[in-house]
Computed example of a mutant assay.
Amino acid sequence: MSASPSTLPAGRGLLYLLLSAASWGTAGAGAALLYGPSGLGPVALTFWRSAGGAALLLLLRLVRRRPGGPVRPLDLAVNGIGLTLFQIAYFEAVHGTGLAVATVVTLGAAPVLVALGAGPLLRERLGGAGLIAVLGALGGLAVLILGGSAGAPVRAGGVLWALLSAAGYACITLYGRLIAARPGPRADALTTTLHSFLICALLLLPFGLAEGLWPSPQGLGRTAAVLLYLAAVPTAIGYALYFTGVTAVRATTVAVTALVEPVSATVLALTLFGERLAPATLVGAALLLVSVTVLAVAETRQAVAVRARRSPRRPCRPAR
């Protein structure tokens, strides 16, 4: 995560994004273990996740003893508010219209919103392979989530919350690419992630207090262990990888790569909670992984082509 945004290879950026999406998929399993026994609601859980992640990142920054680069107030506001909106609106969508529909709308609308904004804001062309990959990924996501729950209720209020969550994700993705294109020094991924979660925790604190911030004393050790995992892996590490990878990869590719998250969540559902694997789950996961692979190949070729155009050509020597 110490690579400079201007020199980070596209392949490594894709690897960081895939790892971050896989780590995000474990957050749902952690939340499922905590809901009920811990007495924490979604807002309080998100607050502790954000505050714990910020504390771990601050400790890492103090140990590292390296300057984190300049941080602009506008960058703090956009990333912090966008991150908060992305998380809270998703929990509200799950409450309003159910997990399946909320996940489909949020993760399905995010790459569409990013693709629509990447053209006018970043001048990034999607291309034929990218368009096919986006459509394949959306189809795979729909099959993966809705395959076993065709009768899931769709409620307008929950769908609106899911679209708002997708807008929050699109905001931090597009703005991350704008920061990467900005000339001059800028904050590294560790600093960006730290300040984003500090703002997220501060924004959520009053709502967490109203919901009930403190966990139940019963099983407190187990609750603390799961909260520590959520703060460390899908938060501090996952988002630091995300804010690093987003600087090296096109915005639409970033959004589609995040669709690996439900694949990771499905694997955990099978191994930890004993859920049965439906044929639709296999088909949906395969479509998602193939689509991400197509985008990865296209992204690598695009990076090679850009590098070739930027590298100075050696003048041809006249034949003697």
Rank of each mutant, 00 (worst) to 15 (best):
V294G: 14
G108W: 09
P9W: 08
L190V: 07
Q87N: 14
A156K: 01
L45Q: 12
R65P: 07
I88G: 09
V246E: 00
L259S: 12
A305H: 13
Y169G: 10
L287F: 15
G80F: 07
V43W: 12
S149T: 07
L83T: 10
A93L: 06
F197N: 04
C200W: 02
T7C: 00
W24Q: 06
G28M: 12
G28L: 13
L33P: 02
A224M: 03
G140S: 09
L204I: 08
Y169Q: 12
W24H: 09
A109G: 05
R317N: 14
L203N: 03
R177G: 01
G11Y: 04
V294P: 13
R222C: 08
A55S: 05
A231N: 00
A32Y: 10
L146T: 03
L144A: 10
R222F: 10
A167L: 08
A170V: 03
L15V: 05
L228Q: 02
Y169H: 12
L141H: 08
A224I: 01
P315H: 09
A110C: 13
A150N: 04
A248Y: 02
T97I: 08
G184L: 01
V143I: 15
L99Q: 13
V105K: 00
L59I: 03
A162S: 05
A286Y: 05
P5Q: 00
H95F: 14
L268T: 13
W214N: 08
A152V: 03
I81T: 04
L74C: 04
A296V: 09
A162E: 01
R123I: 06
L241F: 07
R310H: 13
L164E: 03
A255Y: 03
A269T: 13
G39T: 14
A280Q: 12
P315W: 08
T281Y: 13
V233T: 04
F207I: 10
T191R: 03
L141P: 07
L138N: 00
W214L: 12
A285G: 15
S50T: 06
G147W: 11
P318Q: 13
L174R: 02
P42A: 12
G53R: 00
A319T: 15
S311W: 10
N79V: 05
S311G: 11
L18M: 14
G52Y: 00
W161F: 10
A152K: 01
A27L: 11
Q218G: 03
L135M: 08
L277S: 12
T97M: 05
